[in-house]
């Protein structure tokens, strides 16, 4: 089963909608609630990253019998140094974003902790693509 949601850059009032929809969908299946929680956390962080950093993005989820694969692709500034971005505490978020309590440099590490597979690629100046997989 495939679903996809658009994410608008800069729109914090809508941030979390896509991940919330996917969480609701997963709750209808017979999946361990702890696994659903892990997926929801990873998707929320990924969604907030697009809202905080990119111009727009798309979250695509492919739900299978034994796993979920999610791709979050955005058009935006991209990431110059992915290893650095993965470090806890490193962030390039704006002051306005930090005021909201985001941009603490914990989003990507939080994603990594909650998924079984994570592949992050980026073309600086063009955009970022995050692929995640969680086994049920």
């Amino acid at each position: 089963m495939e679903v996809q949601y658009e994410i608008r850059g800069g729109d914090f009032s809508a941030a979390g909608q896509a991940s919330s929809e996917i969480k609701k969908l997963l709750k209808q299946f017979n999946i361990d609630p702890q696994i659903v929680r892990r997926i929801a956390i990873a998707l929320f962080e990924a969604e907030v990253n697009v809202v905080a950093h990119a111009y727009k993005g798309i979250m695509k989820a492919d739900i299978d019998t034994d796993s979920i694969r999610v791709t979050v692709e955005d058009e935006g500034p991209g990431i110059e140094d992915i290893d650095k971005a993965m470090e806890e505490g490193f962030s390039t978020a704006s002051e306005a974003v930090r005021q909201m309590g985001f941009g603490a440099g914990m989003g990507l590490p939080n994603i990594k902790k909650n998924v079984d597979e994570m592949i992050l690629t980026s073309i600086p100046g063009s955009g970022t693509c995050l692929k995640m997989k969680v086994l049920f």
């Binding site: 929320f44 962080e45 907030v48 309590g101 985001f102 603490a104 914990m106 590490p109 939080n110 902790k113």
Partner: peptide, 13 residues
Amino acid sequence: SDLLSDVIGKAQP
């Protein structure tokens, strides 16, 4: 905490 990702990472249900 006032850091949302800190809460997401560390708070318990």
